[in-house]
Nucleic acid binder design. Structure first.
Length: 489
RNA sequence: GGCGGCGUAGCCAAGUGGUAAGGCAGUGGUCUGCAAAACCAUUAUUCAGCGGUUCAAAUCCGCUCGCCGCCUCCA
């Protein structure tokens, strides 16, 4: 059974075959560091984090490069607005990005190169393109000669003619062809500047990724990823640059994820409908965001809403809740006792890992994998409930193994990484904030209610329960005592 | 205008030729003093609409409608 991945370039799925057996080399376009990251960036980070973890779980060595764009028009503009330098601004937001990633539990890439630290490589690459007649200098700028590259448009499935038909292509008189794009931009006064054969200037946007991927992964590597909006022009231009300069294929598989939308519209700064990662994490634990992100296939749009996040929170609690219950099972069972687990349930528990792999092998189908998790938990709950007072040792062992397997696999999605009891407690405390009642007050009311119950004063007991419910506190009586939880919003 | 994607229950969502996963919500039951949680059962004769291919279609083809994205910075 092999891992099958959808490739934007071919528009179809194919088995992943690394260039070097057992080793995947992957490059993902990171952020332009000029502002706080929004949940679209979070989706990108989370999706590729999941992909890297799954590839490693499948036994591949993974070299994962994710760059920072730290010089660009937006950075220059924002730095001027804030009366600071581009360097200070980009470094500040790279720091913020790292904070966000840490809170999301996103593992660090192998390397996180910055454009400004690779200007030498960029200049060499541009020189090579000029030598090959794929680029030309105009004043202090250098442009890529799009018509000279036969495959231009192959990734995004468009022809130069189609694109020229669009009215939105602005005409720059300096360019030989309207679609030619800048490799090097001569700098204006006050802008960050590097010396080059074409005079003082700075790199164009696309060239940095060609230069850095070449340096760290070689002329040809396995996977290149990013958001769908990067297909054109960014990745199209990268192909033109890299293949133009090396004469070799650039990337084997292109992976692009869908957008995060709000009310079915793409989040964007111009619409003002974006949410930052830190805003969302103020309201929800990181794992809730992860569950939300992975509940849809990575290539589909993902519509953010409070309802969706609350659903995800409920779902996550269901998973943690089941694990917390399992953890309370007695240590030792009766050795050699007959099993109380039916054949079908047993099969479900034993096949957890298998089904997970099957789902994930099909183009990282996390939505299906999560569905399997819920089914597994359903079975575990059912089996647990059906256990006799003194369960068979064998059954306890199977349940514990299943729970351990579930957590092991969920960790690939960055889920169920906390101690179940601790998660439930922390979530409870977080929800308790701002409800106007303390844990001690709740405990006192429960004690009073239990006293009333003992005295068969059910009217009073119910009154107390209603009072608690009014404050969003739900109580749960069981043989071992009364527990409580905060009702989800 | 060019290119691409999507439309599955109240909501979210998987399913790419073999007879509709899963989550959230709902209903009935077990349990409970009553509840809650959990479990059991149940909830789409049907996959935007129409037509076609096929023994067989949500899945393939054509057309129609609706929504979205890219073509300009963008995850």
């Amino acid at each position: 059974m092999s891992l099958v991945v959808y490739n934007t370039r071919t528009g179809s799925k194919a088995p992943l075959e690394p260039i070097e057996p057992g080793h995947i080399r992957m490059y993902v376009c990171g952020i332009t560091a000029y502002d706080y990251c929004h949940i679209g960036h979070a989706r990108s980070a989370l999706v590729f984090d999941m992909i890297v973890r799954y590839l490693r779980y499948r036994g591949y060595q993974v070299t994962f490069i994710r760059n920072f764009t730290d010089i660009d028009d937006k950075i220059i503009k924002r730095a001027q607005e804030q009366n600071t330098t581009c360097e200070e601004l980009s470094e500040r937001f790279i720091r913020m990005f790292h904070e966000d990633m840490a809170r999301l539990g996103v593992a660090a890439p192998t390397l996180e190169p910055k454009a400004t630290e690779h200007v030498g490589e960029i200049i060499s690459l541009i020189e090579e393109l000029i030598k090959r007649d794929l680029a030309y200098q105009v004043g202090n700028d250098v442009y890529y000669k799009v018509e000279q590259f036969a495959d231009y448009g192959a990734l995004s499935g468009r022809s130069l003619d189609d694109m020229q038909a669009g009215a939105r292509v602005s005409v720059n008189e300096n360019k030989a062809h309207p679609m030619d794009f800048a490799l090097w931009k001569g700098s204006k006064p006050g802008e960050p500047t590097w010396e080059s054969p074409w005079g003082p200037g700075r790199p164009g946007w696309h060239i940095e990724c060609s230069a850095m991927s070449k340096k760290y992964l070689g002329d040809t590597f396995d996977i290149h990823g990013g958001g769908k909006d990067l297909v054109f022009p960014h990745h199209e231009n990268e192909i033109a640059q890299s293949e133009g300069a090396s004469g070799k294929p650039f990337v084997k598989v292109w992976i692009h994820h869908g957008f995060v939308t709000i009310k079915d519209e793409k989040m964007s700064k111009s619409l003002g409908n974006f949410l930052t990662i830190r805003e969302v994490l103020e309201k929800y634990p990181a794992e809730v965001l992860r569950l939300f992100v992975f509940s849809t296939h990575y290539r589909n749009p993902l519509d953010y809403s409070e309802t969706a996040m609350n659903d995800a929170a409920s779902g996550l609690e269901r998973l943690y809740g089941a694990l917390a219950e399992l953890a309370q099972l007695p240590e030792a069972g009766k050795a050699g006792a007959a099993s109380a687990i039916g054949a079908k349930d047993r099969e479900k528990l034993i096949s957890i890992e298998n089904r997970f792999q099957q789902a994930m092998d099909n183009d990282f189908n996390t939505a299906l994998a999560l569905g399997n998790f819920f089914e597994a938990v359903k079975t575990m709950n059912k089996v647990r409930q059906g256990l006799p007072t003194v369960p068979a040792a064998e059954d306890l062992a199977l349940l514990r193994e299943s729970a351990a397997t579930l957590r092991h696999l969920a960790a690939i999605l960055g889920l169920l990484t906390e101690e179940p009891a601790a998660y439930m407690a922390a979530r409870k405390n977080a929800l308790l904030q701002g409800l106007g009642i303390t844990e001690a007050e709740i405990e006192a009311l429960i004690a009073a209610r239990n006293q009333a119950r003992k005295e068969k004063d059910f009217a009073k007991a119910d009154a107390i329960r209603d009072e608690l419910l009014l404050k969003q506190i739900e109580i749960k009586d069981s043989a071992s005592g009364t527990t409580w939880s905060v009702k989800a919003a």
